[in-house]
């Protein structure tokens, strides 16, 4: 039993390493179909805990509902020196503001976003759509049937979020703004 668990953890570690996108527990369970499902779940959580306790250069994080192996942020300088890469251009603040509104108020229409920001938001919506950070989520059943937008899986990946509840809550901002 313990031997089985140890091997299972090793296999899962290998799978997380080769996955090019965060790999979810159901995906892992599907690959390891000949193992007990509960055991796989236990193995995953033990592996993540043990792996991250090592404080090595790598870490396993829960991103967009899946597990992802990545370097620790504190080593970015040395890694960049080796890769000879520079940080890519960040989103303009106007787009980030629009993204924040979509993230917290989704699904939300363009007129609603503009009402909240007090400013035309057409071009930032376009930027966000092009970058795949937001996706259309159907139409609102009101006059004009405007398109509703929500955040995408890529949004979670790019901002390193396990899921939407991983974002700080709006109440936190209320305190921040009041204080």
């Amino acid at each position: 039993m313990t031997e089985d668990l140890r091997q299972l953890k090793a296999i899962i570690e290998a799978l997380i390493f080769v996955a090019d996108e965060p790999i979810s527990a159901p995906q892992l369970a599907a690959v390891l179909a000949d193992h007990d499902r509960d055991l796989v779940v236990t193995a995953v959580s033990e592996l993540v805990e043990e792996f991250n306790a090592r404080q090595s250069g790598l870490e396993i994080r829960l991103i967009a509902g899946g597990y992802r192996l990545s370097t620790r942020p504190e080593f970015h300088e040395q890694i960049r020196t080796y890769l000879r890469s520079r940080p890519s251009a960040k989103l303009p603040l106007a787009s980030l503001e629009t993204l924040a509104v979509v993230a917290y108020k989704q699904p939300i229409t363009l007129p609603e976003i503009q009402e909240l920001r007090g400013v035309s938001s057409v071009s930032s919506i376009r930027t966000l759509l092009e970058r795949g950070l937001i996706v259309p989520r159907g139409r609102k059943q009101v006059v004009g049937r405007p398109i509703m937008y929500g955040t995408s899986k890529d949004f979670l990946i790019q901002f390193g979020l396990a899921d939407l509840s991983d974002l700080p809550s709006m109440e936190d901002f209320e305190e921040l703004v009041a204080g």
């Binding site: 942020p73 970015h76 940080p87 960040k90």
Partner: peptide
Amino acid sequence: KFKAAAEVLWSRAEMEQGVFV
């Protein structure tokens, strides 16, 4: 509040840029 949220997203993006797979 959303201006503050945008700033949080900004710093998160900055942090994630230092993470490599």
